[in-house]
Amino acid sequence: MADSVSIEKLVKDLKLQVYSGEDHLKDRVVTLSDISRPGLELTGYFNYYPHERVQLFGRTEVSFTKNMTPEERLMIMRRMSVEDTPCFLISRGLEAPAEMLTAAAEVGIPVLGSSLPTTRLSSLITDYLDGQLAERRSMHGVLVDIYGLGVLITGDSGVGKSETALELVKRGHRLIADDRVDVYQQDEQTVVGEAPAILRHLLEIRGIGIIDVMNLFGAGAVRAETSISLIVNLQNWDQDKKYDRLGSDTEEQLIFDVPVPKITVPVKVGRNLAIIIEVAAMNFRARSMGYDATKTFEANLGKLIESNSDED
């Protein structure tokens, strides 16, 4: 988990404009994902001023400042320019008040801008900071994007996770992370997985070594991150163990506070794991859309039993 995000990184990743304070982009950091729209503060009410948040000015706030005298604007902007204020941000490509630039420069606060509407910009920054500041956890496994679904392949070392991922990439799917997956909770229902920087786009195949998937298969074969929709656990085949044959047993694994559906696939010579996992992803999506082959089979079985009973 990152404790903070520099304003320099915020500007670079979200392609924001810098109106002033470019020399202070590295020094200023954001520690909270919450955004402040300082409506009350512009009226002079500072009892609960959240000075440690990004201060977002939209059309309403900028219009309000135009009804103030230059002296009033400068006084309010100076009260808002606290030592730990990360930055001022103005939406819709609006012009920054001169008094804001003056007060911000006195304390070394960057003033930024964006052409996006205020609501969209607020949502974009909040989501970005939520992801950057979220607690992260490393999981052993391989994360692959299959038909738009994030499938986390887990299992003991040497069971064939990376080789299966390589076959999936050859079949047109996309690699996110091999061996170690960094996961974080985006919201109450979503966990996101990504590769550590040192392992990005790389895949380890025993006997060959490290391969660069992006270099060998192109940019379309990799993806930076994805939400984890399904966990496929590869397990060496145990003849004494009974495996689910109908798919009626539902299993879940908790990642942070989010339950993620999980299936176990037994591994033995002759099984094409890539195709099995590919079909598992397709079947999971079909179930999510209301098409459940297990229920269809059970309904057909019920009809057959009823038909045989009638004949008796």
Rank of each mutant, 00 (worst) to 15 (best):
R285E: 07
Y147Q: 05
I198F: 13
R78V: 03
S162D: 02
D178Y: 07
A293N: 11
A98C: 13
A299W: 04
V18N: 03
S229G: 11
L10W: 04
G21D: 06
K161L: 05
T126D: 11
L168Y: 10
R92D: 10
V169S: 03
V169H: 08
L56W: 04
L16V: 13
D23M: 13
L301N: 09
L246R: 10
F217K: 09
V269M: 07
S6Q: 06
N233K: 15
E306K: 12
E52D: 11
L116R: 13
Y49P: 09
L301C: 13
Y45R: 13
F64V: 12
I263C: 05
I255F: 14
N233H: 15
V54N: 09
D179I: 02
E99P: 05
L230C: 08
M139G: 03
I305E: 13
L42H: 07
G302R: 09
T43Y: 06
R200E: 11
G148C: 07
Q185E: 03
H140Q: 09
W237L: 07
I153C: 01
P86M: 07
D182A: 03
V169P: 00
R37P: 10
T294M: 03
Q17C: 07
K66D: 15
R287L: 06
E278G: 00
D13T: 12
A299S: 10
A2S: 08
D23Y: 08
R59L: 14
V265R: 04
L254K: 05
I255K: 03
P97Q: 14
I231M: 07
L32C: 10
L101E: 14
E278V: 00
P50A: 10
D240A: 12
